[in-house]
Design a protein around this nucleic acid. Structure first.
Length: 475
DNA sequence: TTTTGAGTTGTTCGA
DNA sequence: GTCGAACAACTCAAA
């Protein structure tokens, strides 16, 4: 019997029950990845993320080769390719781990139907999240839309269903005569060598990072205290690995669980946020098109192009915002605290539709994931599940002063501000003209003046949100 | 069915 | 500088 495992967001051999199921009772196994043209050419694609994916495929191919197999990398539309490959090779059973995005679900339903019509069995796992997306229901039977009760239910479910570690299975060989060349390079796909240095893909790099993170003296210990300070290496840096499944989220959960303590508890809650947003997208697919609460689709945005360009380029005149946007361009990654700050700034200070920021993030983030990215943007815009009260608007100056008190983060990414003294690093426009000249940072010349007045924009934003809800304007 | 308690990450104002 | 209240009344989850 020939089995086929379709790798997508589970680029690993261990902690992969669907892969293990594929290997059982099969004499031959075809490990496949399909480079989907629709995703490679999507408007929300990020060259750095594709390069990371290709590197992870390369690593997976090496792991398979070490076990006498190879990864068959195909290109095109999976809806045609998967059934066609199965027919050609005489595959009897296909396995994969399901995904939650509307695109993935339509694609998979199409493939499943085609396989069933061809008399081919399927085995579908759910290893993209820790807790499956429909496993937790409120007392009234619906999906959770508030995080805290979701988290309680999540912990309860895991206490009864803790996923055990699963080593890599013995791999049956490829069907005789099947040649696999391994994955293409970025250049093969027409992606110019990334200007951005990206971390190595694959499971070995993922497990190295995880081990360093949870080790005694590692960042997990003080994660709860330092995770919000963007200048510090206080986070796990595992998000791209979780994005493509080089690391099983359940394995991350187990590793932190073993350590315990306040840092581990906090980080585990972040893993639960990842599941929460996956189940939100699964249950409410309309959030990719508009607000979770449709009433907020009525917000009147300014969508000023010059302001949007200034935000993208990191020249808004607000140091913490500009540092963060430049970090995104330089590293294809941004600290979580800063993601909230720039999202609040785009929506509440620049009054630009959150979907434009959401897309910009997807075009640049190594870890860009539709569910988490959308959830984060809707949270910041105040339009989502678990919406923060709309009147919570981040003040970019006080956020900078609180979380980057000496300006180390700002100085790292905004070199023109390096000589600004700490007391004014987050409001350099308050330097006297003489001070500006003395340090070679003249506002409006060497560094932009603030493109908006925060206090004023805050009031405008409050009014726009009030109007969307149908409330009466202030007298 | 009704009621009650609570909601990741905030800001501003005035004492 | 620190602290608590107000923001403005909303929605969800569970008893």
């Amino acid at each position: 019997m020939i089995a086929l495992h379709w790798f997508r967001r589970d680029l690993r051999l261990s902690d992969n029950p669907a892969l293990r199921a594929a290997t059982e009772t099969a004499q031959q196994l075809v490990p496949v990845f399909v480079l989907d043209d629709a995703l490679l050419e999507a408007p929300g694609r990020a060259p750095a993320r594709i390069a990371f994916l290709l590197d992870s495929l390369q690593a997976l191919d090496h792991e398979l080769a070490a076990r006498g197999s190879r990864l068959l990398v195909l290109r095109g539309d999976p809806r045609q390719i998967i059934p066609a490959v199965c027919q050609r090779l005489g595959v009897a059973r296909v396995s994969w781990n399901r995904d939650v995005s509307p695109y993935a679900r339509r694609r998979d339903a199409h493939v499943a139907t085609a396989l069933r019509d061809a008399g081919i069995a399927t085995h579908i796992g759910h290893e993209v999240t820790i807790v499956p997306p429909e496993a937790l229901r409120t007392a009234s039977g619906g999906p959770y839309t508030v995080f805290t009760p979701y988290l309680r239910a999540w912990h309860t479910w895991l206490a009864r269903n803790a996923p055990a570690a699963l080593p890599a299975p013995e791999l049956p060989p490829l069907p005789t005569g099947l040649a696999a060349d391994g994955p293409p390079s970025p250049a093969d796909l027409g992606i110019t060598a990334a200007a951005v240095p990206i971390p190595p893909g694959g499971t070995a790099a993922a497990h190295q990072r995880l081990a360093a993170f949870v080790a005694p003296g590692g960042a997990l210990e003080r994660y709860h205290e330092r995770r919000d300070i963007p200048a510090e290496p206080a986070t796990s840096q595992l998000s791209p690995y979780l994005r493509f499944g080089c690391l099983a989220p359940a394995a991350a959960w187990r590793a932190a669980q073993v350590v315990g303590g306040a840092g581990a508890d906090r980080w585990i809650a972040e893993l639960a946020w990842r599941d929460f947003y996956a189940q939100s997208l699964f249950s409410f697919p309309h959030v990719l098109r508009g607000a979770f609460r449709p009433i907020y689709d009525r917000i009147q945005w300014d969508d000023d192009e010059a302001r949007f360009a200034a935000w993208c380029d990191g020249r808004t005149g607000f140091p913490i915002v500009d540092a963060a946007m430049r970090q995104l361009r330089a590293e294809a990654w941004m600290h979580n605290r800063c993601r909230m700050i720039v999202a609040s700034f785009l929506t509440k200070d620049l009054l630009i539709d959150w979907r434009r920021g959401e897309r910009w993030f997807m075009q640049h983030l190594l870890d860009g994931d539709p569910a988490s990215n959308n959830g984060g943007w809707q949270w910041a815009a105040g339009t989502g599940t678990d919406a923060q009260p709309y009147f919570r608007i981040f003040n970019p100056t006080s956020q900078g002063q609180t979380f980057d008190p000496d300006g180390a983060y700002v100085r790292r990414y905004v070199p023109e501000l390096r000589r600004v003294p700490p007391r004014l690093i987050h409001e350099p426009w308050r330097l006297s003209p003489a001070e500006q000249r003395a340090i070679g940072c003249v506002i409006g010349h060497d560094y932009p003046a603030p493109i908006v007045e925060h206090a004023r924009q805050r009031l405008v934003a409050l009014e726009r949100y009030r109007a969307a809800r149908g409330g009466a304007p202030d007298a």
